[in-house]
């Protein structure tokens, strides 16, 4: 997966792919961000959505006070990305979709 195309977008802190049990498959993060923590969190949230809302392929965007967190379940694992809250969320979302389609 070409994580580079997402990482190079403005105000994106990092992106990665994690397995269902929270182990990092691939990740690229700017310095200061712990990919493993974000990966584990992504896995936890996806599992929760899957269980609670009975969704096969969970996909979610969470806005916090400081940042925005993208999670998307794919065949390869759980994709996640994090960006600053002022980033262009729409653009990042489109880029993520394109990247995931290309694989």
């Amino acid at each position: 997966m070409k994580l580079n195309s997402i990482i190079k977008l403005s105000k994106v802190f990092g992106a990665g792919l994690v397995s269902n049990d929270g182990f990092i498959i691939d990740a690229q993060f700017t310095i200061g961000y712990d990919a493993e923590k974000f990966g584990a969190t992504a896995a936890r949230i996806v599992n929760r959505i899957r269980k609670s809302l009975d969704v096969e392929k969970a996909s979610a965007i969470f806005y916090t006070q400081k940042s925005v967190f993208f999670i998307r379940e794919t065949e390869e694992g759980i994709f996640f990305a994090i960006c600053h809250k002022d980033a262009n969320i729409g653009l990042i979302k489109i880029k993520i979709e394109q990247t995931l389609k290309k694989k």
Binding site: R44, V55, A60, I61, F62, T64, S67
Partner: peptide
């Protein structure tokens, strides 16, 4: 789901969840 996510973000970045979009088919 929201409280779980909120807890996670608090743990991660001392941040709190403001809103979320969950996409289902």
């Amino acid at each position: 789901v929201i409280s779980d996510a909120d807890e996670s973000f608090k743990f991660l970045q001392k941040d709190s969840l403001e809103r979320g979009i969950i996409e289902k088919p």
